[in-house]
Design a protein around this nucleic acid. Structure first.
Length: 414
RNA sequence: GCGGGUGUAGCUCAGUUGGUUAGAGCACCUGGUUGUGGUCCAGGGGGCCGUGGGUUCGAGUCCCAUCACUCGCCCCA
């Protein structure tokens, strides 16, 4: 065991792990394209204020989870803890307000300084989608449909439930917030220590406390849906009707709230019970106030992000990898011809493996190990005839083929 | 930041109430096979027993600390 380890909460991605990540990313890119979303790659670090101002001063992400550094020039920069703020910043920086509606998708690493556990790392990866400039429920419906689609495409939708809630517009949210604070204040002594703190920082969070005593108190608390004003109710109904029309099933969760301040109206989470404590696989919501809050023009927005590690853990077996062709020179005399053949086949579209050393037995062993479908054997006899021996590695059948006709013979494996 | 569990070979793990040269399977290397892989047989290389300290005649084993991993809390994707 080596003492050189990756930094806590970071991991090397290789072999099947990275194939799972790539599978998630490539399927997502393909589906997102069908919905008209184009890719955006914002910087992995931003000026600290991009996150600090937008996520809210009291959220855990800002108060204790950001990787923040001072540059040599004395600026404070932060490794991005999530994707939306960067996209919103780009929207403002690039002056995109004249081009709405805009649809972006992204994928890449995010960084949060949390205690690692199952499905949670300090460097992790997200895929996400953002729809800017669509203030109506159609936007919510499309964005959720995209999320639902990618989960289905990955074959994991059966393990996942969509939960939804409305946080209402600002007016509704402030009204409910006050009613909730008043109610909870009456139970202050009975609330858990965590929840007493939440009461000050983010009272809505008390609603989904896991503490049993808290749960009891919350049970008879005023319900968020009762405090939505007419406009907010209509909006939420529009989203629900739109999803129902597409046969996208969802569950209403009045306790579902958001840790990040810029959300309004629709909040949703796709969750699973297959991942232990980290059940949220994909989550998002509407953030109509964000861009204005960052100094841009009033612009509606809705989006989501999903944890690639979490999605990858739910994936079933990977599709089989394509099998290479192995070229095997019997001795040194055949090496040059073999190398030329390898090069030629690669240019003609075949995946080709050749061992770097060893006798024929070793090279056959290697061909087997890389799961080659056929071995092309070149020895003294083949050199004389200008041919190669083609051995099917599964059946052991072999035949002789003219060197010039190898591609035609192998066409099946290209 | 707080709690629980686990650290022995590249990997998965065994290792008796503390007792001599620390084991297995898989993987790897060599040979059986100098033009034929997978299966089989024989052999081989690999260990600061996470790290530091302590108890003891003697520690992989007991105690303390520390680090790492892991599960959970908080929070979140």
């Amino acid at each position: 065991m080596s003492t050189l380890q990756p930094v806590r909460g970071t991991h090397d991605l290789m072999f099947d792990d990275i194939r799972r990540h790539r599978l998630v990313q490539s399927k997502f890119a393909a589906i997102a394209a069908r919905y008209g979303y184009s890719e955006i790659a914002t910087p992995i670090f931003e000026a600290t204020e991009v996150f600090a101002r937008t996520l809210g001063d009291t959220t855990d992400i800002v108060t204790k989870e950001m990787y923040t550094f001072d540059t040599k020039g004395g600026e404070s920069v932060t490794l991005r803890p999530e994707g939306t703020a960067g996209v919103a910043r780009a929207f403002i920086s690039e002056g995109l307000s004249q081009q709405v509606p805009l649809k972006f998708f992204y994928s890449g690493p995010m960084f949060r300084h949390e205690r690692p556990q199952k499905g949670r790392q300090r460097q992790f990866h997200q895929i996400g989608a953002e729809l800017l400039g669509v203030p109506t429920p159609q936007g919510d419906v499309e964005v959720i449909a995209l999320a639902d689609h990618i989960l289905k495409e990955l074959g994991i939708a059966g393990k996942i439930t969509l939960e939804m809630n409305s946080l209402g517009d600002l007016e509704s949210r402030l009204a409910y917030r006050q009613v909730l604070i008043d109610y909870l204040a009456g139970y202050k002594d009975k609330l858990s220590a965590d929840s007493r703190e939440r009461l000050d920082k983010n009272p809505l969070r008390v609603l989904d406390s896991k503490d049993p005593a808290d749960k009891e108190i919350v049970q008879s608390a005023p319900q968020f849906p009762d405090y939505l004003n007419q406009a907010s109710q209509d909006f939420f109904k529009g989203v629900q009707d739109g999803l129902s029309a597409l046969s996208i099933h969802f569950k209403l969760s009045p306790a579902l709230v958001r840790g990040i301040d810029y959300y309004s109206h629709t909040a949703f989470e796709f969750t699973t019970d297959a991942l232990g404590a980290q059940g949220t696989v994909l989550a998002g919501g509407r953030y109509d106030g964000l861009i204005k809050q960052m100094g841009g023009p009033q612009t509606a927005g809705i989006g989501w992000a999903a944890g690639v590690e979490r999605l990858a853990m739910l994936l079933g077996d990977l599709p089989p990898q394509s099998r290479p062709v192995a070229v095997i020179p019997v001795g040194e005399a055949e090496d040059a011809v073999a190398q030329k053949l390898v090069h030629r086949l690669r240019y003609n579209g075949f995946a080709v493996d050749i061992g770097y050393s060893g006798n024929m037995g070793k090279r056959m062993k290697r061909a087997n190990k890389v799961n080659a479908v056929v071995a092309l054997i070149i020895g003294e006899d083949e050199m004389k005839n200008g041919s190669v021996t083609v051995r099917q590695l599964d059946s052991g059948e072999q035949s002789t083929v003219a060197l010039a006709e190898v591609e035609a013979r192998l066409d099946l494996y290209r």
